[in-house]
Design a protein around this nucleic acid. Structure first.
Lengths: 129, 129
DNA sequence: ATTTAACTAGTAATTATTGCTAATAGAAAC
DNA sequence: GTTTCTATTAGCAATAATTACTAGTTAAAT
């Protein structure tokens, strides 16, 4: 038997994915909503949320739900690190290779079995430092 | 001039801090509310939130607002890493020294000025692996 | 072309958290 | 100890992000 849900690529889902893939600002659901509305004026905010959840589950995008009352979304599903500026409050992608040895260190030094990790840096961006 | 707000150690604040210092389960505001109510039955949930925010601002505790619709709180204000079990969904403290060189690596390799970082591991705990 | 279930728009509901206000109570000064 | 001052509280209303619901729609398999 095959229980995997058949996800359809609707025009709404396609538009949401395209908007998210074409920005680096790690937008909120509401920002995405405003952008997609330019193309599909009567799209509903619920549709944005539902599709972001589906896309995240399918590993097409990444949810950044760190340290805030709302989530931000990232069109790059590969693990990478972020930098949060304490002044301008923007979130930047860091051009650093992933430290895979962090997982290994945990697995060597503890009884936990680490499969992945999330690392976020806080400080000042080049413009604000 | 001295503008720092004079924080008072009220019995509510003291109780909240004690409850949080005496657990390792990284509880939610609501869990703390239920515990403190045993001692101060008419305490209000707003008081819990306000004090958790004050205590966090004073660096007496730490807020863990990662990947969830609600925040968890940690009575240990020193930077340390957490492990999220994918099965039992508990959050554990890791007995690992802090990797200070991660900040330095960012500062050497990029134009960002990293002051601190947060690192969370995901996988399976000793009981669930 | 027909069929079917995944999906949508619109709206109501939920949930964690914050805001408001009159009353209370730490703690500093007397 | 008493007074004074203002941070804090209880109780409740308000927010804001997100999810749930439902009747109608549509992608895509047959």
């Amino acid at each position: 038997m095959n229980n995997k849900p058949k996800t359809r690529m609707t025009k709404q889902r396609k538009a949401i994915l395209r908007v998210l893939k074409n920005t680096t600002i790690h937008p909120t659901a509401d920002w995405i909503y405003e952008q997609v509305k330019k193309e599909i004026p009567n799209i509903s905010l619920g549709t944005i949320y539902r599709n972001l959840n589906v896309l995240a589950k399918n590993k097409d995008i990444m949810v950044l739900d760190y340290g805030s009352t709302y989530s931000r979304y990232d069109g790059n599903p590969e693990n990478h690190y972020h930098f949060h500026c304490k002044k301008c409050e923007q979130v930047f992608d860091l051009e650093l290779p992933c430290f895979h040895d962090l997982n290994e260190k945990v697995n060597e030094d503890t009884n936990f079995k680490a499969e992945n990790h999330r690392l976020e840096f806080y400080g000042f961006c080049p413009d604000c430092r």
